[in-house]
């Protein structure tokens, strides 16, 4: 039963590594920010999967707060690149 979970974690790790290449290598700041947004989405999926593995309900709240904070960070960096602030 645990091998199913291991497969999901390995797939998530491959997605993270592919996005991490673009985060380190991206020529502009917008590239890096898009890659960081993808990585935060993968991390939110990992957190709610940790909630499933450990059986604790509090990590679902952690996922919600993480999604809110990643959205706020993306909007702030977008406004900064646009020249708004």
């Amino acid at each position: 039963m645990n091998y199913y979970y291991l497969g999901i974690v390995i797939l998530l790790a491959i997605g993270t590594i592919l996005a991490l290449y673009r985060l380190l290598r991206g020529p502009t700041a917008a590239d890096r920010m898009v890659a960081l947004d993808a990585i935060t989405n993968v991390t939110a999926g990992m957190i709610i999967f940790i909630a499933l593995l450990s059986g604790r309900f509090i990590y679902v709240d952690v996922t919600l707060v993480f999604a809110i904070l990643s959205f706020v960070g993306l909007i702030i960096v977008a406004r900064y690149l646009e020249g708004g602030i």
């Binding site: 497969g7 999901i8 797939l11 998530l12 491959i14 997605g15 993270t16 590594i17 592919l18 996005a19 290449y21 673009r22 898009v34 890659a35 993808a38 989405n41 993968v42 999926g45």
Partner: peptide, 12 residues
């Protein structure tokens, strides 16, 4: 998970 990998390949 497969959608995440597709997104990573698109970023790459």
């Amino acid at each position: 998970s497969l959608f995440f990998i597709l997104g990573g390949i698109g970023l790459y």
